[in-house]
C-alpha cells in the first residue's frame, strides 16, 4: 500500500498545489471583495427582486438586510468558481485510476505488480481525500488573508466557518465517490470526465431550479448540493450533522460500489 500511496502522491501533488493556489487566490479576492461590496451596496441591491432570487438560488435562503456578513461569508464558499475548482480537481485526481491507467494502457504494468485492485482503489481514495483537505486548507487560508483587509467586524464567525468547511468537505467526498464509481465503470478517461461533469451540472441545475420550480423542488433531494447550504449554517450557527452524514455516507457508498466494480471487472487490452 505504501508504494501505491507514494506513486499516487507523486502523480497528484502538482495538480493539488495548482488547484490549491487558484483556490487561495480566489478566496482571498472574494474574502475581501464580498464583505466590502455587500456592506456598501447591499441595501440597494437587495431591493432588486432579481438579485434576491439569484441569491436565494445560490444560497438556498432569502437574504435579509441584517444578514449581509453571513451572506458574504457564505458566497465565498458557495461561489460556482470555488465549487468548479474543487470538482475539476476531483475530475483530474479521481479519473487517473483505473480509467486513466486503462486508457493509457499502463494498467497492465501496474496490475502486473503484486497489488490488489481494492488496495489500489483505497490508496487512490486516501490520496484524493487528503488532497481535499489540502485544497480546503489553502482556500480557508486565502479567505482569511482576504478578510484581514476588511476588518474583524466583517469577518466570518470561526465556528460557522469550520462547520461550512466540514460540510464542503463532505460534499467533496460525495463527488469523489461518484467520480471513483464512474472511473471504475469506464474505459476512456474523457468519457469519465464528461460523465462526472454531467452529474455535477445536473446537481447544480436541480439545486438552482428548486426554489423557483415545483417539480424540481420535489426531486431536489437527489442533488448533493441540497445538502450543502453555507448561508443556512452561518445564519443558524449550528452544525449541519444530518447533511454532512448524508453526503459522507453517499460518497462512501459510491466509492465502495466503485471498488467492487473495479475488483470484478475485466481489463481487456484497449
Amino acid at each position: 500500500m505504501r508504494g501505491l500511496l507514494v506513486k499516487s502522491i507523486r502523480e497528484t501533488w502538482l495538480a493539488t498545489l495548482l488547484f490549491g493556489a487558484a483556490l487561495f487566490l480566489f478566496e482571498s479576492i472574494i474574502g475581501y471583495v464580498m464583505p466590502t461590496f455587500l456592506n456598501e451596496e447591499a441595501a440597494r441591491w437587495l431591493e432588486v427582486e432579481f438579485v434576491q432570487m439569484m441569491l436565494k438560488a445560490i444560497l438556498g435562503s432569502e437574504v435579509a438586510g441584517g444578514l449581509v456578513t453571513d451572506a458574504a461569508g457564505a458566497i465565498a464558499w458557495v461561489h460556482p468558481m470555488v465549487l468548479y475548482l474543487l470538482f475539476a480537481h476531483l475530475m483530474v485526481i479521481c479519473t487517473r485510476v483505473p480509467v486513466g491507467e486503462i486508457d493509457r494502457g499502463t494498467i497492465d504494468i501496474l496490475l502486473g505488480l503484486p497489488v490488489s485492485r481494492v488496495a489500489l482503489h483505497v490508496s487512490e481514495l486516501l490520496v484524493c481525500l487528503a488532497s481535499g483537505i489540502v485544497l480546503l486548507a489553502m482556500g480557508c487560508a486565502g479567505n482569511m488573508v482576504g478578510q484581514l483587509f476588511v476588518g474583524p467586524a466583517a469577518g466570518t464567525d470561526p465556528g460557522g466557518l469550520a462547520a461550512v468547511l466540514v460540510n464542503l468537505y463532505a460534499l467533496y467526498i460525495a463527488v469523489a465517490g461518484v467520480a471513483m464509481l464512474i472511473s471504475a465503470l469506464t474505459t476512456r478517461r474523457l468519457y469519465a470526465v464528461l460523465l462526472i461533469f454531467i452529474v455535477v451540472e445536473a446537481w447544480f441545475l436541480l439545486s438552482y431550479l428548486a426554489p423557483f420550480w415545483k417539480p424540481a423542488e420535489m426531486v431536489a433531494f437527489l442533488s448533493a448540493m441540497r445538502y450543502y447550504q453555507p448561508f443556512v449554517i452561518l445564519r443558524s450557527e449550528g452544525w449541519p450533522i444530518g447533511d454532512i452524514a448524508v453526503l459522507t455516507v453517499f460518497g462512501a457508498v459510491m466509492s465502495g460500489i466503485g471498488a467492487v466494480v473495479f475488483a470484478r471487472r475485466d481489463l481487456s487490452a484497449v
Partner: peptide, 23 residues
C-alpha cells in the same frame, strides 16, 4: 505486456523505483 505502455513522465530510474516501492 505485449503492447507495452509505460508512464511517459518517468525516467528509467524512476520507473524502477516506482516498481520497487510497490513490490
Amino acid at each position: 505486456p505485449g503492447d507495452l505502455r509505460l508512464y511517459p513522465w518517468l525516467t528509467g530510474h524512476q520507473a524502477i523505483r516506482m516498481v520497487a516501492g510497490i513490490r
